[in-house]
């Protein structure tokens, strides 16, 4: 279970997040929805360690952790980026096994075996030797999911998982997220698409832009 408490973040004078609290329960899906400019992405960037919050507390299963930390207890969050950010110079297999071998010090065999299992579950068993440019958008996203899961995160986060894809792939993404949930993956999804969020979410957090008194 992930808990975020009293998260605050401003850029200069502009307050983006003012005292945000949220909880993601195990094996559930929390969707954060809101219009653009509401601070969804900033919230996600704070949780994933890409931005430094001004203040706030992060707890995983009751234990505090540092999203920017590199210790074993800090490596709890996986991320699927909006435009996936696969490494173009590495094959699908290398994209997935790079971090497990270099960071978790898994053996090459163990990492490849795990990657094959993940690719199989995501319907990509034949794609391991391809490079990102040879994949469709939907396939890239699934590789990004596999790459994140290979690090065995406690929570998988998505930034706008439907927005870089063809609209008719929306259902496919929903199905993947729901089937991962059945497999016991706890997920946090940031989206501006309320219908999509309502379809997959166990819990919904609506955020709105903070009225700035200035201007």
């Amino acid at each position: 279970m992930l808990e975020v408490k009293n998260l605050k973040k401003s850029f200069g004078e502009r307050v983006i997040l003012d005292d945000v609290n949220l909880t993601v329960r195990d094996d559930e899906i929390l969707c954060i929805v809101g219009p653009s400019g509401a601070g969804k992405t900033t919230l996600l960037r704070c949780i994933t360690g890409l931005d430094t919050p001004d203040s706030g507390e992060f707890l995983m299963d009751g234990q505090p952790f540092d999203p920017q930390g590199t210790g074993a207890s800090d490596r709890v969050i996986g991320v699927v980026f909006q435009d996936f950010n696969l490494f173009p110079n590495l094959s699908v297999m290398e994209n997935i096994t790079l971090a497990p071998t270099m960071v978790l010090k898994e053996s090459k065999e163990a990492a490849v075996k795990n990657a094959k299992k993940l690719l199989g579950e995501l319907g990509l068993s034949t794609k391991g030797d391809l490079y990102p440019w040879q994949l469709s958008g939907g396939q890239k996203q699934r590789v990004a999911i596999a790459r994140a899961l290979a690090m065995k995160p406690k929570i998988l986060c998505y930034d706008e998982p439907t927005s870089a894809l063809d609209p008719n792939l929306r259902q496919e993404v929903a199905n993947i997220i729901l089937s991962l949930k059945k497999g016991g993956v706890t997920q946090l999804v940031v989206t501006h698409d309320l219908d999509f969020a309502e379809e997959i979410a166990d819990d919904l957090l609506k955020v709105n832009p903070i009225d700035q008194n200035q201007d």
Binding site: T48, G49, L50, T70, R75, I77, G78, V79, F81, D83, N85, L86, F87, P88, N89, L90, L98, A99, M102, V103, R147, A148, M151
Partner: peptide, 29 residues
């Protein structure tokens, strides 16, 4: 792109692992 550094960061690769395995091959090309 910045996204490449960010993807490496959330996978907990350190600076030199990122530069060596991800950035340099792309820059060379």
């Amino acid at each position: 792109s910045v996204g490449q550094y960010e993807a490496a960061k959330v996978l907990r690769l350190n600076y030199w692992q990122t530069v060596r395995k991800i950035i340099i091959p792309q820059v060379v090309k």
